Simulated assay, not measured.
Amino acid sequence: MTERTGVVTFRGNPVTLLGPEIAVGDQAPDFTALATDMRPVRFSELGGTRVISVVPSLETPVCDLQTRRFNESVTQLGEATVLTMSVDLPFAQARWCGAAGVQGVQTLSDHRDVSFGLAYGVLIKEFRLLSRAVFVVDATGTVVHAEYVPEVGQEPNFDAAIVAAQGAETARTTEGRAA
Rank of each mutant, 00 (worst) to 15 (best):
V55G: 03
V55R: 04
V55T: 11
V55L: 09
P56H: 00
P56N: 02
P56Q: 02
P56R: 01
P56G: 02
S57E: 00
S57F: 08
S57I: 00
L58S: 13
L58W: 09
E59P: 06
E59C: 10
E59G: 15
T60N: 10
T60L: 04
T60H: 01
T60E: 11
P61S: 13
P61W: 11
P61M: 09
V62G: 08
V62N: 06
V62T: 10
V62H: 07
V62I: 12
V62S: 07
V62W: 01
C63L: 06
C63R: 03
C63P: 02
C63E: 04
C63Y: 01
D64T: 07
D64C: 05
D64A: 01
L65W: 10
L65V: 14
L65T: 15
Q66G: 03
Q66L: 01
Q66T: 08
Q66C: 00
T67Y: 11
R68S: 03
R68M: 07
R68D: 07
R68W: 05
R68F: 04
R69Y: 12
F70V: 01
F70G: 02
F70H: 09
F70C: 07
F70W: 13
N71P: 05
N71W: 06
N71G: 05
E72C: 06
T75K: 15
T75Y: 09
T75C: 09
T75F: 08
T75A: 14
Q76N: 14
Q76I: 00
L77W: 00
L77G: 03
L77H: 00
L77C: 01
G78W: 10
G78K: 01
E79F: 05
E79W: 09
A80Y: 10
A80V: 00
T81S: 03
V82I: 12
V82Y: 00
L83F: 12
L83D: 11
T84M: 12
T84L: 09
T84W: 04
T84E: 12
S86W: 02
S86F: 04
V87D: 02
V87A: 14
V87N: 08
V87Y: 02
D88G: 06
D88H: 05
D88R: 06
D88A: 07
L89P: 12
L89M: 12
P90R: 01
F91A: 15
F91M: 11
A92N: 10
Q93G: 10
Q93W: 06
Q93L: 05
Q93R: 04
A94E: 14
R95W: 10
R95L: 11
R95I: 04
R95C: 02
W96L: 12
W96P: 14
W96F: 15
W96I: 12
W96D: 13
C97K: 13
C97D: 12
C97S: 14
C97E: 13
C97N: 13
G98K: 06
G98L: 03
A99I: 14
A99T: 15
A99F: 10
A99Q: 15
A99N: 15
A100D: 06
G101P: 03
G101I: 01
G101Y: 00
G101Q: 08
V102Y: 09
Q103A: 14
Q103H: 14
G104K: 02
G104P: 11
G104I: 03
Q106F: 03
Q106P: 10
Q106H: 09
Q106T: 15
T107Q: 10
T107R: 09
T107A: 13
T107I: 07
L108T: 02
L108G: 05
L108E: 05
L108I: 07
S109N: 07
S109T: 06
S109A: 10
S109L: 09
S109V: 08
S109I: 08
